[in-house]
Simulated assay, not measured.
Amino acid sequence: MCLGIPGEIVALLPDRADLATVEIAGVRRAVNIGLLGTSGDSGVGVGDWVLVHVGFAMSKIDEAEAAATLALLRGLGEAYTDELDALKGSDIT
């Protein structure tokens, strides 16, 4: 099962305009933000929340929606923890 998980952008990678460091449940990973653009393009920037699916930021969401989605995902139990384990082992850089 693949889930879209909310994450907060904590850094934009200066040498890769299509990547940002996103924190999801304490795990930091590079995520492709190419579908959304950067804050200079009215896209995303540091502090924004995005919905991440298979290494891509699919949409920008607000913090309240992120919190509600994370609460729902935690309730899924094993499917959520499996997804976090997969995230910990991933690297797209």
Score class of each variant (00 low, 15 high):
91 D>P: 00
18 D>G: 00
6 P>D: 02
43 G>A: 03
40 G>Y: 14
10 V>P: 03
58 M>S: 08
19 L>C: 00
80 Y>H: 09
81 T>M: 05
80 Y>F: 14
4 G>V: 03
43 G>K: 02
59 S>N: 05
87 L>I: 08
20 A>V: 12
10 V>I: 12
60 K>M: 04
15 D>Y: 10
33 I>R: 07
40 G>Q: 15
45 G>V: 07
26 G>E: 09
42 S>Y: 15
56 F>E: 15
37 G>L: 06
2 C>L: 07
30 A>C: 06
38 T>E: 13
21 T>H: 10
74 R>Y: 15
39 S>P: 00
31 V>I: 15
70 L>W: 09
61 I>E: 08
92 I>K: 11
92 I>C: 06
19 L>W: 06
46 V>W: 14
54 V>A: 13
20 A>W: 02
46 V>R: 14
88 K>Q: 09
40 G>W: 15
59 S>F: 07
60 K>Y: 00
74 R>I: 03
27 V>P: 01
92 I>R: 12
74 R>W: 13
61 I>Q: 10
66 A>Q: 04
10 V>D: 03
19 L>E: 01
57 A>K: 06
78 E>S: 08
83 E>T: 10
11 A>E: 14
39 S>G: 00
16 R>N: 08
16 R>E: 09
69 T>M: 04
3 L>A: 03
55 G>Y: 12
7 G>N: 01
88 K>S: 08
58 M>F: 02
45 G>R: 04
11 A>S: 12
21 T>R: 15
12 L>N: 06
28 R>L: 05
35 L>H: 13
56 F>V: 10
57 A>S: 04
23 E>I: 14
62 D>V: 04
55 G>E: 03
63 E>I: 06
76 L>I: 02
62 D>L: 00
74 R>G: 10
24 I>K: 10
2 C>F: 14
20 A>D: 09
37 G>Q: 05
58 M>L: 11
84 L>C: 03
25 A>L: 01
89 G>P: 01
68 A>T: 06
86 A>Y: 09
52 V>W: 02
27 V>M: 13
9 I>N: 01
53 H>V: 05
80 Y>C: 00
89 G>R: 12
67 A>R: 13
91 D>C: 03
27 V>A: 13
14 P>G: 07
83 E>H: 15
50 V>Q: 03
25 A>S: 12
69 T>R: 10
42 S>T: 11
14 P>R: 13
61 I>H: 11
38 T>D: 15
78 E>V: 05
